[in-house]
């Protein structure tokens, strides 16, 4: 957003950053946790709420519906996922889809397995889905899967239409079906391995981009990927999206791949987070904490409150460290 904001109507201005959505959620949360939040005063509560939205820590332990609700929430969630489990990548551990899914559910209790599977399909090119993956690969695929979910759904339809010889220019009804209903595609695709004509696919994808005002990858990046080969498969395309540095930069949640695992500041931040989240401060390995926590799903809620209170009681020094990382 730039100085054009002065030319917008009030509603457009507020809609641009989902201001009303956050205000409503703040009040909903206030009502659900009256006693706890009111003791510090409503303004202090709202200040804390919006401050956490600003720094992206607001999505931790929230329901998946909330995480999906705004682009900022999706990007924040990816960042938190990266921050929490970066250690895994550092140790070079390869994990399976289900293991990643459990990790996701530790920070978002109702995180759908299907979304993790969608990301895994991207990494593994829709093949041998039980294969373990590196953290960086999975993280980048998840980023695309989560951030552009609607876009991916609609290009999947386009791809299938092209594959079955239908004209992609027929009106595409945005379906609410998500990726989990796609296994039939997997079989039909192995039959037609050569994919579809890249330029026809590009035309259709660009048309789809125009329909989506916000959540689609930048058109130049799409063009760049699709002009490399004459034929393209859906997962070939999605994998290329996930690996594209420019798109990741545009979303702005993650550093470049080279810096993904190097960040001493983040190590301290991680220590701090773990110390706050886990009841026993002795655990320094996130995996150990993860395994211990997986037994009791109800606990994140409680520890969130615990965390909130710590933040409220502190004299703002934590806020300073928060802002320094941005």
């Amino acid at each position: 957003m730039n100085s054009d904001r002065f030319a917008l109507t009030i509603d457009e201005y507020l809609a641009e950053k989902d201001v009303m959505f956050y205000l409503e959620d703040a009040i909903t949360q206030l009502l659900e946790h009256k006693e706890e939040y009111v003791q510090f005063g409503v303004s202090r509560y709202l200040a804390e709420y919006f401050n956490s939205v600003r720094h992206g820590s607001h999505v931790l332990f929230r329901e998946f519906g909330y995480i999906k609700a705004t682009p900022h929430n999706r990007a924040s969630f990816i960042r938190i996922f990266w921050k929490c489990y970066r250690q895994i990548g550092k140790n070079g551990v390869l994990l399976s889809t289900l293991e990643y899914s459990s990790l996701l559910q530790l920070i978002c209790p109702d995180f759908p397995v299907e979304v993790a599977q969608g990301a895994a399909r991207m990494v593994l090119l829709d093949d041998a889905l039980d294969c373990p993956m590196t953290f960086a690969d999975f993280l980048h695929a998840l980023q695309i899967q989560l951030y552009f979910e609607e876009f991916i759904e609609s290009i999947t339809v386009i791809y299938q239409d092209l594959l079955s010889g239908k004209s992609p220019n027929t009106v595409i009804v945005p379906t609410s079906t998500s990726v989990e209903q796609l296994p039939p595609l997997a079989t039909s695709e192995t039959a037609a391995q050569e994919g579809v004509d890249a330029s026809a696919f590009q035309d259709a994808v660009e048309a789809a981009c125009e329909r989506y005002k916000h959540s689609h990858p930048p058109a130049p990046a799409v063009g760049e990927i699709l002009q490399q080969d004459e034929r393209v498969t859906l997962y070939g395309f999605l994998t290329a999206l996930a690996k594209h540095e420019g798109i990741s930069k545009e979303i702005g949640s993650l550093p470049s791949r080279a810096d993904l695992l190097i960040d001493p500041e983040m190590d301290q931040e991680l220590e701090r987070l773990i110390a706050q989240i886990s009841v026993s401060p002795t655990s320094s390995c996130s995996q150990a904490a993860a395994q211990r926590d997986s037994g009791r799903k109800a606990s994140p809620r409680k520890s969130l409150h615990h965390r909130k209170r710590i933040e409220m009681e502190s004299d703002g020094s934590t806020e300073e460290t928060d802002s320094s990382e941005n």
């Binding site: 957003m1 730039n2 904001r5 002065f6 201005y13 507020l14 641009e16 950053k17 201001v19 956050y22 205000l23 510090f40 005063g41 303004s43 202090r44 709202l46 200040a47 919006f50 401050n51 939205v53 600003r54 900022h72």
Partner: peptide
């Protein structure tokens, strides 16, 4: 009409508090 309305609200409520 600040550029970052969320940050504005955070600061505004902090000011009020």
């Amino acid at each position: 009409r600040p550029e970052d309305p969320i940050g504005f609200l955070a600061d505004h409520f902090a000011n009020l508090a």
